[in-house]
Amino acid sequence: MKRLIFIVPLVVLAGVIVAFAAGLQRDPSILPSQLLNRPLPVFAKASVQPGQPGFGSTALRGQPALLNVWASWCGACKVEHPELMALSSAGVPIYGLVWKDTAPAAAQVLDTSGNPYRATADDADGRIGIDLGVTGAPETFVVDARGRVRYKQVGPITPEVWATTLSPLLARLRAEA
């Protein structure tokens, strides 16, 4: 009995090490979405491009779609832009929420590097972003046919993220719908 007490430090250490080793595999800065399995907050905004239609939360109904939160000042958004272009031409519906940006700056990005979005919405004061629980750009919400958020991707969509996470998820959501 008395000897057991002396083993306690070793046991505690083992537990701590296991927890740390597991913790190393995770990124502590990524927050889970509060909207998971809940409908998108209601919004409707004008486009950043003059003359083009904007969109609202109801636009993301009927079929699974991506809601991409981006801005012209965001470096990582430029990283994912080619991938979004490829997905768009493959027929994936992507909607762009322009977050805390000016419309002309965002429109210029679309004019020069291409527009992967079905429509854009101008969230200049960032309030929709806050309703969505956005912590930074880019973030991408996967929304199902009934308009509910099913997944949130924090950080750029790389070909790897698409292949391993988003593509299978979208396929499943399409089967659901």
């Binding site: 008395k2 000897r3 002396f6 430090p9 070793l10 250490l13 083992a14 090490i17 740390f20 190393l24």
Partner: peptide, 27 residues
Amino acid sequence: PARGIFILGMVVGQTGIAFALFAWRAP
């Protein structure tokens, strides 16, 4: 993270051995 794993290994190698010694000898 690669450095993290190495440092974790050092903790195991140093403290782990010391605590094992402690469990064995201290009683």
